[in-house]
Structures are given as C-alpha cells and as structure tokens.
Design a binder for these strands. Sequence first.
DNA 1: CCGTGAATTTGATCCCGCGCAAATCCGGAA
DNA 2: TTCCGGATTTGCGCGGGATCAAATTCACGG
Lengths: 232, 232
Amino acid sequence: MDIEARTAVLSRSPFFRELDPDLVALSAREAQERKLAKQESLFQQGDDATHHYVVAWGRLRLDQATPDGKNIVLRFMGPGDLVGSVAVFRGMPYPATPVAVEETSVLSWSAVRMMALMQENPPLAMRAMGMMGGRIEELQARLQEIATQQVERRIAATILRLAGQSGRRTAEGVEIPFALSRQDLAEMTGTTLHTVSRTLSAWIEEGLLEGRRSSHLVILRPHRLVEIAEQA
Amino acid sequence: MDIEARTAVLSRSPFFRELDPDLVALSAREAQERKLAKQESLFQQGDDATHHYVVAWGRLRLDQATPDGKNIVLRFMGPGDLVGSVAVFRGMPYPATPVAVEETSVLSWSAVRMMALMQENPPLAMRAMGMMGGRIEELQARLQEIATQQVERRIAATILRLAGQSGRRTAEGVEIPFALSRQDLAEMTGTTLHTVSRTLSAWIEEGLLEGRRSSHLVILRPHRLVEIAEQA
DNA sequence: CCGTGAATTTGATCCCGCGCAAATCCGGAA
DNA sequence: TTCCGGATTTGCGCGGGATCAAATTCACGG
C-alpha cells in the first residue's frame, strides 16, 4: 500500500479524521504495514504491548481467553479501528488476541513514537480518549445487557450493535459484511452456540433474518429486531 | 477544605500522583469543592457532561439504570478516583449516576478547563488514558466473568475486586470499608439479592467472611475466596 | 424503650437455557 | 464428482438460579 493509500485510510478513520493534514501525512509515512492471512493473529494475549495499530482493511475478531480455557469475543474491528492502544497506554501486556477473520491489513506505530505524536498533537490524544470512552460505554452497555436481560434480547442487541458498527444497507436489508459464526455470537452474548442456533433459526423462519449456514447475516426487518431487543 | 488539603488529596490520587507539583497546585487551586450527603447524587444519568470530578473523601456508587427499570452497579469510587471524565471526553451525556453511599466530597473542573490543562500538560492526558484503559480492562474482565462463570465464582471475584480496590487490612482480615448491601453485590454480579444472601450466609457459616447485616464485610480467609473465584 | 420498616434470611417451586448426544448439511479439497 | 470435516441444526432431560412467599432481624427515629 503506498503512502497515498495509507493517508486515505487514515483520513477516513475515526482516529485521524479531520485532524491536521500534515499530521495525518506524517503518521501515514511513519506507519509500518502488516498483512494478516485469514485466521492469523496480530499478536497474542499476554504479549508485551509495544505497538498501536489501525485496521486499514479487512476484519479482526478480538478474543479473550479465560483462565479455564473458555473464550469470549470482545468485539469485531474493521477499517479505521484502533487496536492495542488500551494496553500500550496502561503499560500492561495485551489483554486479548486479535484474529483476522478475513485477509486484513493493519498500519502500526511503536508505543514511543505514538506517544510523541500525541504529545506534540494534543488533538490526537483527545481523539484517543474519545475512542476509549466509546469502548467503555459499549462495554458498560453489554454488561448491563448480560446482567439483566434474557438470552434472546441479548442476541438481538448484539446483532443490532454489529449492524450499527459495520452494517451495510443492501436491497433486502442490512448486511453484516463478514463471516460471523453461531459460535462467535454465543461468545459475544454469554450463551452457547446451541441456543444461538435455535434462536436464529426461529428468526430466519419468521422472515426476520437471512443467513443460513456460513453466508453473511442479513437483517430483513430491523425494526422487528429492535422490538425484540427492547421488549419489556 | 483549604488549598493545602486539596493539594494533598490530588497528589495522592492516581490521576495527579507524581506529576509536576506546580500543575498539581494549580489544579487544586482551580478546583471547585462539592459535598454530598449520604444518598445524594453528583449528577444524573442523561445530564450533559460538563465537569470532571475527583473524589476527595467518601465513597460513590456508580449506578446505571436500564431502559426497563432495572439497575446495575458499575463500580464503587473512593478517594482519588476520577468521575465523569469518560462522558466529557466523548461529548455525550453522563451514562450513569454516581450516588454517595456515605458523606462525600469531590473536587471538580469544567470540561474546557480540564481540556486546557491536558493540552498544556501531556503527561496529564497520558494519565487519563491510563485510567480509562484500566476501566476498560476491568469491564472486560467482568464481562468475561459474567459470560462464562457461575454465580458463586462471580460473587467471589467481585468481592476480591472490591477488596483490591478499597480493602483495608485489619487484625482479622481484609475489610471492605463501606456499606455494601446484598442488593449492591447482586447488581454488580448480575444475580438476585436472594442468591447473594444465600451464598454469603454459607461463607459466613464457613468462617470465610464476617459481616452479617449492615456491618462492613471482612474477608477472613482471602486465600480460600481466591480458590472459589478460580475453581476450575 | 418501643415501634416501624427496610434489609436480610430462608423456604418452596418453577423454568430458561445449558449439557450431552446425534443427525445433517454444506464448502472445499482432491 | 465424491469425500471429509467442521459448522449447524435439532432433540431431550436436568439443574442452577430466578421467582414467589414469608419469616426474621436489626437500625433508627420518636
């Protein structure tokens, strides 16, 4: 990817968007690019946090392994999303593993270099805080869901959240544009793939969704899904 | 509270600790103090986020109301903790309500003033990011617990987390130095007060804990509690 | 010191969703 | 085209915790 392409990617990312063009250009020039094959990890949970990354294109799934061998999906990340920064700012090892769910390209900067960029460009630091704040609010919302709502509502809310973050409007409805397994949804909602499968089957039956087997999910009746997510 | 007392409070807070003394003194001088009676709220969920706060003394419980009238406890905050900043950085309304569980004093700064302080003092901005990162990791850990572990383990983990954040070593064990109801624990762990009550009763019976009724909880055998939290 | 009410404890029952098992269905490799 | 393996679907029975109920027990105001 040449510098222009990188600059274009960065200026579209929520992190650099509308910041000083010189800063964006400089950052694009200094970034290292890395490509990941499907299934490949950007780094491993527990590794020292040495770099900040921004997804250029593709899709990552952020997995957290539990001490007892289970796994939960913290989130999916696409173009423009910031990866690894939380750990770098804390000076702690990465708390999760980002895995490419399709071929993916990321740009990276070393911790020290990004620190310097932020110190020289306070607006960049403000952006980083805004993004971390967004992550906190998302996590709080999910915690609230899982703590108070039944499985069906959580699955609906999770699908809607994914649609809001990455959904693409198509002729039939809103498509979630990447492979999302029943297992993934189970690990995002704190349930089992069995329950997710049963729930989605019912919804597909009902004409609410489309996406049997491994095709991408398409929400045919978003409003109805919102009703399920909010049902009193 | 006079300037010296404020300065002392701030220099002990994780937010200002070991930063430039002039900055700490300036911040202390500019802060507004506000006292809250027991049960009083600092602000309401949904209010515009206009100020950053640091707890000087006392204790706040951060509550999040769900759309369907339930409530969850996001965390407890004590001296040195930062309140409200997440929302201010996002430019969104406060997502939760901090309620004083005992008489409490907070220091505050307007959003613009704090922004200026951070832009002039990058290390302060870095601190803020570190603290937000800590919040993110805590939320991720809780999400993992609630998504994968049984209630008993979650309650144990929650008590241990509170002990780690605010616990005081006493002759008998580790005390959680504020009123923490069964209901509070239930709203932190995603269960009901009934289940919490049963679980704690068993632990008290077993000599693991102390704190029937509304006295403060004391962990008599922390190691045993860790075992429960980590039981395979 | 007593009465009142909220917090806690405890009991009994029910049911959502998990665990286990098995069948089925594709996607892709050869 | 066929075969293989992982993903998905579906059935069934049990159990952890929720729900519904009620009894206790303190803290506290008067």
